[in-house]
């Protein structure tokens, strides 16, 4: 008898895991991206992108593991032993790299060819209908090359989902154990998988992080606009610069120190008097 997982389409299974995993990890990555932005590093290029991708790895492993377990438990009534997240993540990543490589090439070619063909078609139309207005031309040309591009892209996404679904199924077949729990119990189980072992600790550390972030935000946020209007007469705040007279400053400081010394001496005297009083008593 075929394994029950074989009844599910691999694309649907992969979608169920990948889509929820994406959104599970999203808020955490968003925070990382925002922190990078606050530090004036663009998370979409260079070092920022590398940082974001590296930080995403543990987040994704955790998210894939969590959502995969949920999907198996709820839909297939299967419990999985072992590090599902790690195993699914690296397989998905390898497949992703392969498919992305192929997609990069294919989409690039489609865009290049598509744009050429679109331009040729427009030229042809213009031959017969020279008055083709610019607005129509732009939209027509855009559609002519984006539609095939979108289709190629979709094919690659489906390809990846199919391959990933195939790997997901293998994981289930290899290490899945049928759970005897009722549906209600299974829902409860995956729901509980989302509660930390020590809620108070998590809440307190979260609150700490938020207070820290708030202070960082206050420090980073410029008081006046970082992009002033070129014509705006900015009122330069002129600080009345007091001419510093070093001699005066020294004299003043000396006087203050002397005063302080006098006060200190007086205090000590009083103290010693009090202690002697106490002793005499």
């Amino acid at each position: 008898m075929a394994h029950p997982v074989e009844n599910l389409s691999s694309i649907k299974l992969a979608w169920a895991v990948a889509w929820s995993a994406f959104w599970t990890g999203f808020p955490f990555k968003l925070i990382v991206a925002l922190l990078l932005l606050a530090g004036q590093v663009h998370p979409w290029e260079g070092a920022g992108l590398v940082t974001l991708l590296v930080v995403s790895i543990p987040i994704d492993i955790w998210a894939v593991g969590l959502t995969a377990r949920t999907v198996f438990l709820e839909r297939l009534s299967m419990e999985i032993r072992g590090p599902v997240g790690v195993s699914l993540w690296w397989q998905g990543a390898v497949l992703g790299a392969l498919v992305l490589g192929g997609a990069y090439y294919a989409v690039g070619t489609t865009v290049a060819v598509g744009q050429k063909v679109a331009a040729a078609i427009i030229a042809l139309i213009k031959k017969f209908y020279p008055a083709l207005p610019i607005a129509e031309q732009i939209t027509l040309e855009l559609l002519l090359w984006t539609i095939p591009t979108a289709i190629v892209l979709l094919v690659f996404v489906l390809l990846w989902l199919h391959l990933f679904g195939w790997r997901v199924k293998r994981v289930v077949v290899a290490s899945g154990q049928t759970s005897s729990a009722s549906f209600v119990e299974r829902v409860r189980q995956w729901d509980y998988a989302r509660v930390p072992a020590d809620p108070t600790l998590v809440l307190v550390s979260f609150a700490g992080v938020i207070v820290t972030l708030t202070v960082v935000f206050w420090v980073l946020l410029p008081v006046t606009t970082p992009t002033p209007h070129p014509d705006y007469p900015l009122q330069q705040v002129q600080k009345a610069s007091k001419p510093v007279k070093p001699e005066e400053l020294i004299n003043k400081t000396e006087a203050t120190l002397k005063k302080a010394e006098a006060v200190l001496a007086a205090l000590e005297k009083e103290k010693s008097r009090e202690t002697t009083k106490g002793k005499s008593k």
């Binding site: 729901d191 979260f206 609150a207 972030l213």
Partner: peptide
Amino acid sequence: CARRSFFAGFIKVIGALIGLP
């Protein structure tokens, strides 16, 4: 109840994330 109170606490903490800055 523990589950509910965790979420209730979480709501307050995230609320602070919006209000405090």
